[in-house]
Write a protein that binds this DNA or RNA. Structure first.
Lengths: 356, 356
DNA sequence: CAAGGGGATTGGATCGATCCAATCGCCTAT
DNA sequence: ATAGGCGATTGGATCGATCCAATCCCCTTG
């Protein structure tokens, strides 16, 4: 009873995992034939293949990862840095992306190695170490920034990589996937306009951040398309709570009937200010957020938000990575994914505000 | 300019990473001497060591991970499963733990391999595969449950592992670290009692969950120590928002002046109900949460919560793991860590309620 | 002066899977 | 009947680092 039969085969406690030679012996074939059974089954006569496969099954054989890496000169492992978030505060979006990345890498038959980093510089240092150890074949980047040194470095070394987050700089290296933030706020703004809102404020970040400008643009162009005013309806704030509230107060003073916030956190600040003034989010002033973080559904009223297709993004990153490994010289690929608006009560009761 | 000099040494584009033989040649020594320089430097004469070290530096040499694993029969890699959270909803606590684990593993010179799983059964299946591939030496478990099949399986195979989360069952296998939930709610309850509260309600989960009972116990014993009533002051709910609100209503009907919630999510539900009744969290009824999730600091008023020492927990897991690898037959070790109360405005203005 | 001894250094064998080139077996075409 | 051809199968060499045992060097001791 101590000696469970594992899913894939027999195992006597204390016995070393089966090797290729063991399988060959049992199947009465040469070692190379076992290797072929795994890597080029079409070379084997069906009956030989069956015999080898049976032996593999019976012994619960799996190729020794290190031995395989050594000979093949590839690790089938993807590296991914975990940013040491300063305040110990975790990033829900990246966390979901990470899970999705683990799925995607796994589905593609690759291992995922994660390691901590403090800064882009240190991240590059770790890239270098891992590459010299030949512990990874490629990297997936996240938290891309404006003048991100990682792309250039990896490009210079011809290391396959894919980034989640576009390269904002003029000169861009590398494959990337990103979420179309503008399309997200466009959907949110459109949703509000369709409900009859005319004075729709934007609660965002200071000018200059790539993500911020991208998302803001979706609001601006939708407002213009509908012939709605934008002047004075854009308030900026760093992401601290108190500042967010201050910015929200400014917007409400301009008598907006709806607010498009560029993050759920900002939307939460907006909720606070509404309540502080005796107004009810949703009923009196509509609010939308961004990221569809866990709190969105928990808030009262539940917050309409824009959900990023992170599973798809991770899959696409891995797909690009594999393509890059196969065709190292192919021109860099980019892909924007459309996010999805999740309508909830914070933007719902249109009848209460439809007098726009 | 395309040819940056990496932190650790020279690299001509297209050149394969240096091997031990390269270093030996350059340092005018045998291969084994290079190996000794890395693994048993005390065997070398200082001047030889210096020569080898210099060559290593100049070539930017790092041992090939796979070759080393193959020969040493150990991967210096820790495996860790990422649970495929059903609703795509991520778990902030586990996310922080994961970051801390990456740090701890790294600090101990180990790699961290993550892989996705759907269930404990599938997780065991993946353990088995990784072990047969000899891709990992050990595992760190999270999300432990009552009758967790993983401990027994790993124990049966004599695989080193450490769990974050105690083994609740009668028969317990394996090393573990856990956070002392009772001590956490005890601190919260004590904090409220010290502020003069006498009717302190508990907002928790249905009986039977290990974590829930543990945390509830801290409240119960603190109340009893102070001679305060507990009957009727404990409300249970599954973790859905609406149910949480319902349970909070029950508590408030019993005229509590403070609520100890067993999670920040539950505390949030409590906030909602207070507002629904025109009461202000903190000012009218004190509230504490658990986990110190990102929203705690963002709420208005900021939520007093119990912070779990996840960095310490991860460090301890790794420490136990290494000890287990060194001494496989040592009796299993367990460790409870004390959490820390983070007092914020939701439990502060004591003067307003001190008439208890 | 030769033998002894211990620290420093070395080459050969090995870990397990894959690459390569060679061989084997069998069927067809001459 | 034999050469030719092709599909199937095989052993030997190799990837890079480490284990092991042997050797080397230099200094002490009988």
């Amino acid at each position: 009873m101590d000696d469970d039969v594992p899913p894939g085969g027999v195992s006597r406690p204390g016995s070393r995992p089966a090797t290729m030679a063991d399988v060959a012996r049992r199947a009465q074939v040469g070692r190379q034939t076992v290797s072929n059974a795994l890597n080029s089954p079409e070379l084997l006569r069906p009956e030989t293949l069956a015999r080898v496969t049976a032996a593999i099954e019976e012994l619960g054989y799996r190729p020794h990862a290190a031995a395989r890496s050594l000979r093949r000169r590839e690790s089938r492992t993807i590296g991914h840095a975990l940013e040491h978030s300063a305040a110990g505060r975790s990033n829900a979006v990246h966390d979901r992306f990470l899970h999705a990345l683990a799925d995607a890498a796994d589905a593609a038959g690759h291992r995922l190695l994660v390691f901590p980093v403090d800064s882009h510089e240190q991240e590059i240092e770790r890239y270098d170490q891992l590459l010299r150890e030949q512990a990874v074949d490629a990297f997936v980047l996240a938290h891309t920034s404006e003048a991100d040194p990682r792309h250039r470095w990896l490009h210079g070394k011809s290391v396959p990589f894919a980034a989640f987050g576009r390269s904002w700089g003029e000169q861009s290296y590398g494959d990337w996937v990103d979420v179309d933030g503008a399309a997200g706020t466009e959907a949110a703004t459109e949703h509000l306009a369709a409900a009859g809102h005319r004075r729709i404020g934007l609660l965002g970040w200071p000018r200059g951040s790539g993500t911020g400008e991208d998302r803001a643009e979706g609001w601006r162009r939708t407002m213009e398309r509908h012939g709605l005013p934008v002047r004075g309806l854009r308030a900026a704030t760093a992401n601290s709570t108190e500042e967010a509230r201050q910015a929200a107060r400014v917007l409400l003073d301009r008598e907006v009937t709806a607010v498009v916030a560029l993050s759920d956190t900002l939307a939460l600040g907006c909720y606070d200010v509404l309540r502080e003034r005796g107004l009810r989010p949703g009923a009196d002033v509509a609010v939308t957020g961004f990221d569809d973080s866990p709190i969105a559904a928990l808030l009262d009223p539940a917050l309409t938000s824009v959900e990023q297709p992170l599973e798809q993004a991770a899959k696409e990153c891995v797909r690009m990575l594999l393509a890059r490994i196969t065709e190292p010289r192919h021109p860099y690929r980019h892909r924007l994914l459309a996010p999805r608006l999740v309508a909830r009560d914070s933007s719902r009761p249109p009848e209460a505000v439809a007098q726009g």
